[in-house]
């Protein structure tokens, strides 16, 4: 697949003839210099963006031609993100932040509350507090709670993707949400500049100029 952005100075190819398959439960790291197409690849894999050419198959189904609302539904039920900037809603508690996507997915109130409590306990965040009161690593952990909920909501869920840059620059590797997600059997894609984070992935892809130049498995 390829992804070309039309720009004023001429089209820019962020992805060039990229072909990649990610198995269920796989832990994939993506590294490369800035501007090589890592984020674009993540957005396309996460169905946030659509490729200019080529198909995207999710569980064997071509999702590149889905409508915006169908892609939203797919993301809501099957895919999760941990953003570098977390994007937690500051007016809500961490508990409510975790509960919110589940409410959007139509999970019953008692069920989603129990699940939110379980997820916050899982990352070590206890009573409901405002995200602003957390240190950065705690905010990331709260944001990471969105990922397992995606898997839990759908009965046949199989994949979750995480922007692993959330963990960059943090020495407490045992707190990284991708590790926890992967330990739980979720497929994880981590985009990072941090070699320590990248080293935890079993499979590592190196990108340059919109192409995959190296694909290694350890």
């Amino acid at each position: 697949m390829s992804r070309v952005f039309p720009m004023a100075a001429g089209p820019v190819a962020a992805l060039r003839d990229v072909s990649i398959g990610i198995a269920e439960g796989e832990y994939l790291g993506v590294v490369g210099p800035s501007g090589c197409g890592k984020s674009t690849l993540l957005h396309v894999l996460g169905c946030v963006d659509v490729p200019t050419t080529g198909p995207i198959k999710f569980q064997g189904r071509d999702v590149s031609g889905l409508s915006d609302s169908d892609r939203s539904r797919l993301r809501l039920r099957e895919i999760g993100f941990v953003f570098q900037r977390f994007f937690l809603l500051p007016m809500l508690t961490a508990f409510e932040n975790v509960e919110l996507p589940q409410a959007e997915a139509g999970v019953a109130r008692t069920e989603r509350r129990a699940r939110a409590r379980e997820l916050l306990d899982f990352v070590g965040l206890g009573p409901p507090r405002r995200p602003s009161s957390f240190r950065a690593v705690r905010r990331r952990d709260a944001a990471g709670c969105d990922c397992p909920r995606a898997r839990e909501q759908a009965a046949a869920a199989a994949g979750g993707r995480t922007d692993g840059r959330a963990g960059s620059g943090d020495g407490r590797a045992n707190h990284l949400p991708p590790d926890r997600l992967h330990a739980d059997g979720t497929s994880v894609v981590v985009v990072t500049h941090d070699p320590a984070v990248a080293s935890r992935a079993r499979r590592l892809i190196t990108m340059r100029d919109g192409r995959i130049v190296e694909d290694s498995t350890r």
């Binding site: 946030v48 939203s72 969105d146």
Partner: peptide, 16 residues
């Protein structure tokens, strides 16, 4: 805008 884009990425529909 960042929060809105994040909500959209998490699966909130455009109309929502």
């Amino acid at each position: 805008l960042g929060e809105v884009a994040a909500l959209r990425a998490l699966g909130f529909s455009r109309w929502r």
